[in-house]
Design a protein around this nucleic acid. Structure first.
Lengths: 234, 234
DNA sequence: GGCATCAGCGTACGCCGTACACCTTGGAGT
DNA sequence: ACTCCAAGGTGTACGGCGTACGCTGATGCC
């Protein structure tokens, strides 16, 4: 009986596990990323995975670092502001390809090495632009998760997609009748933003525009602090 | 046999369920908020809860609105900037009392009525300060979850507390030896921020200071846009 | 040829949310 | 006063989850 019915598929490895996990999360959302589903995709029994990752948290940590590596390196010229802006926009594009990432990162209680490297490099960009340690520090806090391309919206369609898998654009639901009565200011915004009364905060808003608007607001404020030699008086 | 061994405790109600749920989440973290644990706290069988809430998601939605009600109403005088600032700081204090709130809100895929009311009122404050619908709209997006007092930090000790229950302050862990080699810029910040080398981003950073720093950065940028009559050229 | 190592397997445990059928009770309608 | 029904609370059960633990069979080293 020569061989097993089939040559054993490339025999599993941390690398292969992480890649399969990323693919599964991309396609089905992070809610569908269970050890059982992942094992099935790999043609293996669930407990086999534990020979390559310590537990699910560590699996997710590995996935994060795989994806963080996709972010472009900082551009060398054009000044700190340009470098920071472009890198954050690159991070945002990566997050849009892997909408489960923000959930994954928020579920970790400690930073992964890949994220630390990214943050370290970002601090380096500020320092290289002449920022004091003090200002660079507070600026990093102020940008917070936006530095990784997070939208920071309160209710984010991309977040939902990350949970349950990329879905169709889904047309904006019409507002219920009493909405305009109870929330007149929101209704007014919705009307203006969409030219015909549509969803609260769904489409009708240009995500990319809002992201860059917020990012530039922050960066210009930071530039001003930098120029006037801001320092924390503590 | 006169009565049952005990007079039936105030016989459960949506109100009582929500309150018990908030208390449980406050004390044990939202990870410990299971229908089973909650039922036990109420001296009742798990399925009894479903006579008062549709499912767990709707339970959490109810909890959110209970807590959102704790946020102070907007102060009437002092201008829009002062009103917005004070209200956001109030929201932040509420979130600090209920550290599971940010997790809870992020887990909802649609805004609750209480949150919509809060947002509506916040838009009203901007509009009352002379903001155009257009600018108010984009400003709301730019503030994002910060408008509800979210810290928006990438790795937040409060988030952890919300998961597993309020814990002791936990002294900053010393950095591993090779940290300074791999992440020199972060290490530099850590050293300066804590006067003796301590944790990455843990204590040593004054959360309240960082929050207000970021908030003021944003508000001042917004004020500038407002003063120069910014409008989206779309 | 013997043996240790380790990748993968199988079973099992204790959690989770919740569907569904049942019982009990209190109040309304006659 | 009696009936009946709606609604609140119960019990059991199902399918999912992460993962502990012990086994098996192949591989590579002496």
């Amino acid at each position: 009986m020569a061989e097993q019915t089939e040559v054993r598929r490339t025999p599993l490895s941390r690398e292969r596990v992480l890649r399969a996990a990323v693919t599964l999360a991309d396609e089905a959302g992070i809610d569908s990323l269970s050890m059982r589903n992942l094992a099935q995709d790999l043609g293996v029994v669930p407990m086999a995975l534990y020979k390559h990752v310590a537990n699910k948290d560590e699996l997710v940590a590995g996935m994060i670092d795989v994806v963080v590596d996709e972010i472009d390196p900082p551009v060398a010229d054009g000044g700190w502001k340009h470098a920071v802006r472009e890198r954050i926009l690159s991070a945002r594009r990566v997050l849009q390809r892997h909408p489960w990432m923000s959930l994954a990162i928020e579920s970790q209680q400690t930073a992964t090495p890949g994220i630390l490297a990214y943050l370290d490099s970002m601090v380096g960009t500020f320092r290289g632009g002449g920022f004091s340690v003090d200002l660079a520090h507070h600026v990093m806090h102020a940008m917070g998760s936006r530095i990784l391309g997070f939208s920071q919206e309160l209710f984010d369609a991309a977040r939902k997609a990350g949970r349950s898998g990329a879905s169709s654009p889904e047309p904006p639901a019409a507002l219920p009748a009493q909405f305009a009565d109870r929330f007149p200011n929101l209704a007014e915004i919705a009307v203006v933003a969409s030219h015909d009364d549509a969803s609260v905060v769904g489409r009708g808003c240009d995500d990319q525009f809002e992201f860059e608007f917020a990012l530039d607001l922050l960066l210009e404020g930071i530039e001003r602090l930098h120029q006037q030699g801001w320092t924390s008086s503590r």
